[in-house]
């Protein structure tokens, strides 16, 4: 559904003159952080357009974001989770003809001043998606041993499945070009899509690379993945990845 419209909109893309980069901010109950995130992006990336995806927040995230002129806000009528919310951003970026889209989480964890590093990498290394990694060539980032273990596990899995070294496969701080946006606006898994997207892009013959970045430790709120949920998370993600590998290329 909608694929034809998408390809038609690519033509519209070539005619566009304004911003080339879209910053997509997925946000669920982030009224305490969203303003700062938007201001930081406007300061560090004055040429980028900003799109907030308000994933049916229970607080005033959408209203707060709208107070800043020039910021586009999509209010989703139902909560879709991070995957569905980001995919909305991918679809928007495709249709509006942006050359690049970058995900910057609404909790303020991702630093907009690091985006130029991603842009440089995508252009110099000719990648289709660049992942901002906390663990690559950057001073150590404190995280739980549990998450470390999980990331290590994914590292082994990716090396075995798609012959790719990824140090931070769960990082959502990513820059996409149109090729990867096209693939992911067609399919992006719902729950914890980051590791799966790597496999998906590789299967579609696209290039994924990483660049080391700094990230901020969270100030408000807490991670969505609790110790109780994490085995379930791992099982679901691994299953999703294995199925992505088993599926014929489309």
């Amino acid at each position: 559904m909608g694929e034809n419209c998408l390809s038609r909109n690519i033509e519209a893309a070539e005619k566009r003159e304004s911003a080339e980069l879209l910053a997509v901010i997925p946000a669920f109950n982030e009224q305490g952080n969203i303003l700062r995130v938007i201001h930081e992006i406007q300061e560090e990336l004055p040429l980028a357009d900003i799109l907030v995806i308000n994933d049916c927040s229970e607080d005033r995230t959408g209203l707060v974001a709208r107070t800043i002129p020039g910021v586009k806000v999509i209010d989703l009528p139902c909560n879709l989770g991070i995957g569905g919310a980001m995919q909305t951003g991918f679809k928007y970026a495709m249709r509006a003809g942006y050359l690049y889209a970058v995900q910057i989480d609404g909790d303020g964890q991702h630093l907009p001043q690091e985006v130029p590093k991603l842009l440089q990498a995508i252009q110099e290394k000719r990648c289709d998606m660049v992942i901002g990694s906390r663990f690559l060539e950057v001073e150590s980032f404190r995280t739980t041993w549990c998450r470390r273990l999980g990331i290590r596990f994914f590292d082994l899995l990716f090396r075995a499945l798609v012959n790719l070294r990824i140090t931070d496969s769960t990082s959502g701080f990513r820059l996409y070009n149109r090729k990867s946006l096209e693939v992911l606006s067609r399919y992006y898994s719902s729950d914890y899509p980051e590791p799966d997207a790597i496999v998906l892009l590789k299967k579609n013959g696209l290039k994924v690379c990483e660049v080391g970045v700094a990230m901020r430790e969270r100030e408000h709120g807490c991670s969505s993945i609790t110790p109780i949920k994490s085995p379930y998370y791992m099982a679901k993600v691994v299953l999703t990845i294995l199925f992505s590998c088993a599926r014929p290329r489309r």
């Binding site: 909608g2 586009k72 806000v73 209010d75 139902c78 879709l80 928007y92 719902s190």
Partner: peptide, 21 residues
């Protein structure tokens, strides 16, 4: 149904923004 629902939800969000613009 879930897949259809997701696509529709996204479309509603995108259209809302379009209407506002």
């Amino acid at each position: 149904l879930k897949a259809q629902n997701k696509a529709l939800t996204q479309e509603v969000g995108l259209l809302r923004l379009k209407v506002e613009e």
